[in-house]
Computed example of a mutant assay.
Amino acid sequence: MARPSEAQLRRALVAVCQRLHARDLIGAGEGNVSCRLARGRLLVTPSGVEKASLRPADLLVVTEAGEKVRGRGRPTSELPMHLAVYAARPEVEAVVHAHPLTAVALTVAGAPPPDDLLPEAAVVLGKIALAPFATPGTAEVPASLAPFLGRHDVLLLERHGALALGRTLGEACDRLETLERVARVAFLARQLGRCEPLPPAAVEKVLAAAHEAGLTGRQGRAPRR
């Protein structure tokens, strides 16, 4: 399948930013999104801009080394985090970072990542990594993520937010949205008195069924194509 054009990717990336804002996954200037372009370049959101009002022309093009090629302003301050993902995972085409309220609250409370509560968690999210707290906008962030990037498509950043990887912008955004929905279930279950995970055997059956249907890899990660 041919790679979408830059114009198409600009529109898709802006649509993801609007979706994140509409779902209350980001607010104000929070969050950052990127995707691969051709010839070793990336399309990224600008720094400090309210994402719901972004236009396609507001996005910046950078190299995989982080050098700005074109666009006004500065790339997101979390660009090193995005660069680390693309360097570690050549098959990843899009990265979405947001601040989902319930999922972040779980990290503040010290609750475990909600990756074994519901079938959709196992299938869509896979095993969720929990990266230790790192100062946002610094080299601490990619360093904290480095041990997990090779094995996880969804990562919680302690007291900071969440990171979702995907083969498309839509897939990465789907994972972020699913993470927050599952986190809400975990929160509500705890409020009601119990939050029991699916037994490991049940998780294996869910993954096996999804794998047979072509929906996921055996470890809960989307199959490579």
Rank of each mutant, 00 (worst) to 15 (best):
S5F: 05
E6T: 04
Q8R: 14
L9Q: 14
A12W: 09
L13S: 07
V16F: 11
V16T: 10
V16C: 13
Q18W: 10
L20Y: 07
A22T: 15
I26C: 00
I26P: 01
I26L: 02
G27R: 14
G29H: 06
G31D: 02
V33K: 09
S34C: 07
A38N: 06
G40P: 10
R41K: 11
T45P: 00
T45L: 11
P46V: 12
G48A: 08
D58H: 14
L59K: 09
L59W: 12
V61K: 09
V62I: 09
E64C: 10
E67A: 15
K68C: 11
G71K: 07
R72M: 07
R74K: 13
P75M: 03
P75N: 07
P75D: 06
L83V: 05
A87H: 12
V92E: 08
V96G: 05
H99D: 02
L101F: 09
T102F: 05
T102W: 09
A105L: 15
T107P: 10
T107N: 11
G110L: 15
A111L: 14
P112T: 14
P113C: 10
P114N: 12
D115L: 08
D115K: 11
A122R: 10
V123A: 07
L125G: 03
G126N: 03
I128K: 06
F133S: 04
A134Q: 07
P136H: 00
G137D: 01
T138S: 02
V141D: 07
P142G: 00
A143T: 04
H152N: 04
H152K: 00
D153R: 07
V154A: 05
L155Y: 03
L156W: 02
L156F: 03
L157V: 01
E158H: 10
R159L: 00
H160M: 00
L163A: 04
L165G: 07
G166D: 02
T168W: 12
G170F: 04
D174G: 01
E177H: 04
V182D: 06
A183L: 06
A183S: 15
V185L: 14
F187T: 02
L188K: 05
L188Q: 10
A189D: 12
R190L: 13
G193I: 08
P197K: 09
P199K: 09
P199S: 08
A202Y: 02
V203I: 15
A210V: 08
T216N: 06
G217H: 11
R224H: 10
R225V: 10
